[in-house]
Amino acid sequence: MSRTGIVVFLVVCVLFVVSWVVKAGTGDPEGHYIRDGFLVTFAAFLTLAIMSFMYKDNPYYKFAEHLFVGVSAAYWMCLAFWSTLVGNLVPRISERLSNAFMVPHQPGEYNFFFYIPVILGILLLMRLSPKGGWISRWPLAFIVGTTAGLNFVRYLRSDFINQINSTFLPLAVDWQGFGHFFSNLSLNATGQFVAMFGNCVIFFGVLCGVIYFFFSKEHTGWFGRASRVGIWVLMITFGASFGYTVMGRISLLVGRLTFLLRDWLGIAS
C-alpha cells in the first residue's frame, strides 16, 4: 500500500470513529445508542464506498462489493434452505424431520409428489461426481423444458392473442359524417379527432413494428420502408421509456442522499 493509501485509510478510520462517537452521543440514551450509532455510520460508509466507484475502482469499493456479495450469497442460501427445504419440503415428507426442525408436519394424500423435486435435486448434485456428471443434465432438461412449455401457452395468451385483441380499435370513432367531423375538429385530448388519430397510430405502429420483426424476408421495397417506420416507432417508444425510468432512478439517488444528509449528518430535515 502506498503512503497516500495509508494516509487515506487512517483518515477514513478516524472519521469513522468520530462519526460513531458523535452519532452514539446524540442517540437515545435509553436505547441501544452505541449499536445504532455504529449501524448508521457503517451504512453511510458503505454508501460512500459504493459511490466512490464513480471516481475509480478502489479498496473501499472492493470492500463494500465483497461484503455485499458475500452477505447476499449467504443470505439467499439460508433463505432457500429455511423457506424451501425446511418450510415447504420437510413438513410434507417426514414427521420425524419436521419435529427435528420444529415445523408443523403437514400430512397429505399427494405428498409423495414432493419426492420428485428431491430426486431431481439429488440428480442435479451428481454434477459434482466425476463419472456421473452427465446425470445432472436430466433434471436441467426437465426444468428448462417443462417451464418453457408452460410459458409457451401463457405467453401465447398474454403476449399474443390479448395483444392482437388490443389492436381491434375503430378508425372512425363516433362517426357522424364529414360535416360533423370538420365542424367539431379540435385537439382536445378527449375529442373525436385525437381519439381517431390515437387509434391510427396504435394500429399502424403495431403493423410496422411487427413487420420490422420479420426475419425470413429481406427488408427491401415497401416492406423495408414499413420496417423503417417500425423501428422509428420503437425508438420513439424507447425514448419515452428511457426518460420515464431515469426519473425513477433519480428518486433512488434522492433516497440515498436523504439518508446521508438527514440520518447520518443531520443537516437536512
Binding site: 399474443f160 392482437i164 385483441n165 389492436t167 381491434f168 380499435l169 375503430p170 378508425l171 372512425a172 394500429f203 403495431v206 403493423l207 411487427v210 413487420i211 420483426f213 420479420f214 426475419f215 425470413s216 424476408k217
Partner: peptide, 26 residues
C-alpha cells in the same frame, strides 16, 4: 421455428386488419 414465428406474425397482421375493419363497422 423462426420461419413458423414469421408466419404467425403474418397471421397477426391479417387478424389485426380484419379486427380493425370489424370494429370500425361495429
Amino acid at each position: 421455428s423462426l420461419k413458423a414465428q414469421d408466419l404467425a406474425k403474418a397471421a397477426v397482421v391479417i387478424i389485426a386488419l380484419a379486427g380493425l375493419i370489424a370494429t370500425t363497422f361495429g
